[in-house]
Amino acid sequence: MGERPEAWERQPGESAAAWEAYACYRDLGLSRSISKVADTLRKARTLVERWSVAHQWVIRVEAWDREQDRVWRAERQQAARDVARRHARLASAAQSKIIAQLQQLDPSRLSPADVIRWLEVTVRLERQAYGMDLAEATSGPAAQDAVDVSGLSDEERRARMEQLRRELESRIGAIDGDRP
């Protein structure tokens, strides 16, 4: 015995003409109606209605719509995975080049604003890599310590950077001291 066809496929006992009408109805999408099928196929509306009732078009087309939605979601998920893989490969390639440039970077040639920007970027990347909440970093208790240096003079920025450097060295030393 053969398997029963899917609801949206041609059903046993469904004539070619009734199947053609159902397929027309199914393919009209959200604007589908018996009248549109009758007009499109140049059939009597009453005949199309009989076919619709006899072959359960409404139930079948609901199954079709669910299947199309399932297929669409699966395709979108696969596309998202493909994009993520492609972006990861691109990021990895770019990181290799950036690392090579960073290794040649002379820190003494960076302005205080450059150092602050590098610090912000690297902290953000590290937090993202560990899955930490970035909103917490910009709204939590530590964010209250943040200082806007855009209005400071170069001398004031250098002093602030020196203060931040000492704090970082102190924190790094404390972390290194905790390591076995």
Rank of each mutant, 00 (worst) to 15 (best):
D154E: 12
K43I: 00
R26V: 01
M132H: 15
Q68I: 00
L134W: 10
S139V: 05
W57R: 02
L90Y: 13
A38P: 03
G173P: 05
A23C: 06
I172L: 15
V121D: 07
A129F: 06
A100G: 15
Y130C: 09
R73T: 06
V149A: 15
E20G: 15
L102N: 11
V61F: 02
R60Y: 12
I172Y: 13
A21G: 04
R66Y: 07
W8E: 00
A94N: 13
E162F: 09
L125G: 14
E136Q: 09
H55F: 14
A80Q: 13
G13W: 12
A93N: 13
S139C: 10
L164G: 11
D133F: 01
R86Y: 08
V149M: 10
A88M: 10
Q56Y: 12
W8R: 04
I116L: 15
Y25W: 03
A93Q: 13
M1L: 03
L30Q: 10
G151Y: 14
R85G: 06
C24A: 06
A79E: 12
T46C: 08
L30W: 11
A18D: 03
D39A: 11
R10G: 01
Q104F: 08
T46D: 07
E167T: 11
A74D: 12
E120Q: 10
K43A: 05
D82L: 06
E6Y: 07
R166M: 13
A84G: 09
R158Q: 15
A16C: 07
Q104I: 00
A74K: 10
A143T: 00
G177K: 05
W51V: 00
E67V: 02
A54V: 06
H55A: 04
Q77W: 09
I59N: 14
S31Q: 11
L30M: 08
L152H: 11
A93Y: 07
Q78R: 14
V71E: 06
L110Y: 09
D82T: 02
A94H: 12
R157E: 13
V83C: 13
V48C: 05
R60E: 08
L125D: 14
D82N: 09
L119N: 03
E126I: 01
S92I: 01
V147S: 10
L28I: 08
D69N: 08
V61E: 00
S52K: 02
R117C: 10
Y22C: 05
R4C: 07
R109I: 03
G173R: 06
D133T: 01
G13V: 00
Q95P: 02
A54G: 04
A174Q: 08
V115P: 00
V83I: 13
A38V: 01
A143E: 01
R158M: 10
A93W: 06
